[in-house]
Computed example of a mutant assay.
Amino acid sequence: MSRTASPDRIRLVVLFGGISAEHEVSCTSAAHVLAAARREAYELVPVGITRDGRWLRQDAAIAALAEGAALPGSLEPAGTVVNPIDLLTDTGSGLPTVVLPLLHGPHGEDGTIQGLLELAGVPYVGTGVLGSAVGMDKGMAKVVAAQAGIPQGDWIEYRDGGGESVEALARRAATTLQFPIFVKPANMGSSVGISKVAGAEGLPGAIKEALQYDEVLVLESGVHGREIEVAVLGDLIPEASVPGEIIPGAEFYDYEDKYVTGGAELQIPASLDADEVAAVQELATRAFTAFRLSGLARIDFFYDEGTPDRPGAGWLLNEPNTLPGFTPYSMYPKLWEASGVGYAELIDRLVDIAVRRHVRRAAISTTR
């Protein structure tokens, strides 16, 4: 792989933890990325963000990395308190800095940390402010997908305090959507706060549960289809991995199934014919471009093949994930491994994309 845009060695700041409900997922992702990154290519600087928003340089992990010692399977923020801007702009090592944010959920993949990194003027892995915000907000993502002509299921959006009661929303959903209905916080990932509701009587409770995590909700008709995911890598010209299929071990692919029990079955590659693979890869890269994503994303679809007595809807977008996990159960690195890109090379390519994008954008004039 060519790394002509990147210097020989980089100070790679790995951000993890954060104040969202996906804190634990982020800590696990960070441990595995730090263990896999090539020591000869990077000076690794793990920085944990506590649940109350303090930034801590992970001194013990830095020492372990320097000694070649193994890291635990998950890191919890601990160490020396640091000022974010001082940390990001530190040039004491003489190496250029690239930031790898592994902050899932709100204040991590919603454009907020990306805005800070833009102001600090440092290259970073992943999508920028706009794409991160749109990709994180399930309601806005559906609006953009509709405008781009990307097929998706029926849905409605709800904003708490907008004049419609929980009970009125439940009645509206029951009459306009098809059961089972999925109730989701608009700005949350890893299936946190999501409920699958089989009948009208369960909607009020599911809505109240989701409102604990966000003031904006998305309610979706359940789709009778297979769950197919595609990993996308790149920037202006993205590449799609082989598709993979999720066969949930639980009623649906929830938080426990993803990160705790690992009960879901991952089929990589998915059992699809060549035309089906080409179609979903084209949709995945089209969605990546429509949402203005960069670096990495996992684009999730449903494939409704239909039955002898019911016509299928074909490919339907579920959602984009702009910062997919890097845990042992995560689909994103597994899909790229099956596509010929190993874990360490994947990190290299993401860093290289970040540097190239930063150089390109820095050339844009800011004066008249």
Rank of each mutant, 00 (worst) to 15 (best):
M1R: 09
R3Q: 02
R11E: 12
L12P: 13
V14E: 05
F16C: 12
A30G: 04
A31T: 06
A37I: 12
A37F: 12
R38I: 03
Y42I: 00
P46Y: 07
V47Y: 08
G48L: 04
R51T: 15
G53N: 09
G53T: 04
Q58D: 15
D59H: 00
I62M: 14
L65N: 11
E67M: 10
A69C: 01
A70Y: 01
P72L: 01
G73N: 14
L75G: 08
T80Y: 00
D86R: 13
L87Y: 12
L88P: 05
T91P: 04
T91S: 14
P101F: 12
G108P: 13
G111A: 12
Q114E: 10
G115P: 05
L119E: 11
V129L: 10
S132V: 07
A133I: 06
A141C: 14
A148W: 02
D154Y: 03
D154H: 08
W155L: 09
I156R: 11
D160M: 12
E164Q: 15
A168C: 08
R171H: 08
R172S: 13
R172E: 14
A173D: 01
A174V: 05
A174K: 05
A174W: 03
T175V: 14
Q178D: 14
F179T: 05
K184Y: 06
G193T: 03
I194Y: 02
S195Q: 02
L203K: 08
L203H: 10
K208Y: 06
E209W: 10
Y213D: 11
Y213E: 08
V216K: 15
L217A: 00
V218G: 09
L219P: 07
E220G: 11
E227K: 07
E229K: 03
V230Y: 04
V232W: 00
V232T: 00
G234M: 02
D235G: 01
D235Y: 00
E239F: 04
A240W: 04
S241G: 10
Y259C: 06
V260W: 04
G262T: 07
E265P: 04
E265F: 04
Q267M: 05
I268N: 01
D275H: 07
A284F: 05
A284N: 08
F288I: 09
A290G: 11
L293D: 08
S294N: 08
L296G: 11
A297W: 07
I299N: 06
Y303A: 05
D304F: 12
T307Y: 05
R310A: 05
G314E: 09
W315L: 13
T322G: 05
L323A: 11
P328K: 11
S339T: 02
L350V: 01
D352T: 11
A354W: 13
A362H: 03
A362C: 04
T367I: 13
T367S: 15
